[in-house]
C-alpha cells in the first residue's frame, strides 16, 4: 500500500485538495478581498447559497428542500440555483460533494489520518443506514417545527461559515467531530450520520460519472477495500456484473483508483460502461461474429 507513486499515485488526492481549497478560497477572497470581475463579485455567499459574478445563482438543494418543507416559499433565484447544483451533482455523482467540496472532508480525513497513525480501532459500531434516519428526521422536523432542521445545527454550515466570515465557538463543534471520528467511530460523521451525505447518496443513484470496474484485471488483493471510506459500495461481485460501482454512497474520492496496483478501477461515463457491457454481452451470445 505504500508503493504508491508520488505524485502520480496521489493525483486524485491532490486534485481533491485543490478543488476543496479553491472553493473555500474563492468564497473567502470574494468576502474579504473583494475578488471580482468588472465590479461583480466573483463568488458571493457560501455553500448554502451563492451567486457567480452577480448572474448565476447556486444553492444547496437539501437546504432549499428543508425550507420548502417548513412551509415557506422562496424566490425563483434560489430555486433555480438549487436546480442547477442538483443537476450538476446528478451528472458527476451526488457524493462527489462530500469528497471534493465539503470542508468537513478535511477534518474527517485528518481524523482518519490520526486514527491510522495511532492504530486505533473503533470502540463503537453503528449501522451506516442511520444516516437515512437522520435524513428523514431532518425533513420531518423541518415540516413539524417550521424551520430548516439540519441547517440550524449543521457542523458543515458552522465550519464553512466561520471559515469565511470569522471564527466563533464553531471550533468546539469541529473538535468534537474530529474526536468522534478519530477515537469513537471510524468515518463516524461522514460515513454514518451526515444527512447531507445521505441526501447526496440518493442523488448519486442516477449519476452519469461512475467508478468503472474491470474484473478481468482484478487480482482481488483487497487494497481498494482497505482505503475506501465507504467499503460497502465496493461489492466487487455486483461491481463486476455492472462493470462499475453502483451505489450512490460512493463519494468518488478515487482512493481505490489510486491504490489499485492493476488499474482495474477508473472514472468513466456510465453510458460508456453500459455500452461496453452490452457489447461484450452481445459478443458472448453470438460467438460466430
Amino acid at each position: 500500500m505504500n508503493t504508491r507513486r508520488w505524485p502520480g499515485g496521489h493525483r486524485y488526492l491532490l486534485a481533491r485538495r485543490l478543488v476543496q481549497v479553491t472553493v473555500l478560497l474563492t468564497f473567502y477572497g470574494t468576502a474579504h478581498w473583494a475578488w471580482g470581475i468588472a465590479g461583480r463579485p466573483l463568488l458571493a455567499g457560501n455553500l448554502s447559497s451563492s451567486m457567480i459574478l452577480g448572474t448565476v445563482p447556486l444553492a444547496d438543494p437539501f437546504a432549499v428542500l428543508q425550507i420548502l418543507l417548513s412551509g415557506h416559499w422562496l424566490r425563483w433565484e434560489v430555486l433555480a440555483g438549487a436546480a442547477l447544483v442538483l443537476g450538476l451533482y446528478a451528472i458527476v455523482g451526488g457524493r462527489s460533494f462530500c469528497a471534493w467540496v465539503c470542508p468537513v472532508n478535511l477534518v474527517a480525513d485528518g481524523a482518519e489520518r490520526v486514527r491510522e497513525r495511532l492504530g486505533l480501532r473503533s470502540g463503537l459500531h453503528l449501522p451506516r443506514q442511520i444516516r437515512y434516519v437522520v435524513l428523514t428526521l431532518s425533513l420531518l422536523l423541518s415540516a413539524l417545527l417550521g424551520i430548516a432542521a439540519f441547517e440550524w445545527v449543521s457542523p458543515i454550515g458552522i465550519l464553512h461559515r466561520e471559515l469565511i466570515y470569522g471564527i466563533g465557538f464553531g471550533a468546539a463543534a469541529l473538535a468534537g467531530l474530529f474526536i468522534f471520528d478519530a477515537l469513537v467511530l471510524r468515518h463516524g460523521w461522514c460515513g454514518h450520520l451526515c444527512p447531507l451525505g445521505a441526501f447526496w447518496a440518493q442523488v448519486g443513484r442516477v449519476a452519469r460519472v461512475r467508478v468503472a470496474f474491470d474484473e478481468s484485471t482484478c487480482t482481488q488483493c483487497g487494497d481498494c477495500l482497505k482505503v475506501c471510506p465507504e467499503p460497502q459500495v465496493l461489492n466487487l461481485k455486483a461491481a463486476a456484473q455492472a462493470g462499475m460501482v453502483r451505489s450512490g454512497e460512493c463519494t468518488h474520492c478515487a482512493r481505490c483508483i489510486s491504490v489499485c496496483p492493476e488499474q482495474s478501477l477508473a472514472f468513466s461515463w456510465r453510458a460508456h460502461i453500459e455500452q461496453t457491457a452490452s457489447a461484450a454481452d452481445h459478443n458472448e451470445r453470438s460467438p460466430a461474429s
Partner: peptide
C-alpha cells in the same frame, strides 16, 4: 418567518 426562510448564505453581509 425570517428565521425559517434565511438560508444563512451571508450575501446580505457581503
Amino acid at each position: 418567518d425570517f428565521a425559517a426562510t434565511c438560508i444563512k448564505c451571508g450575501q446580505c453581509v457581503q
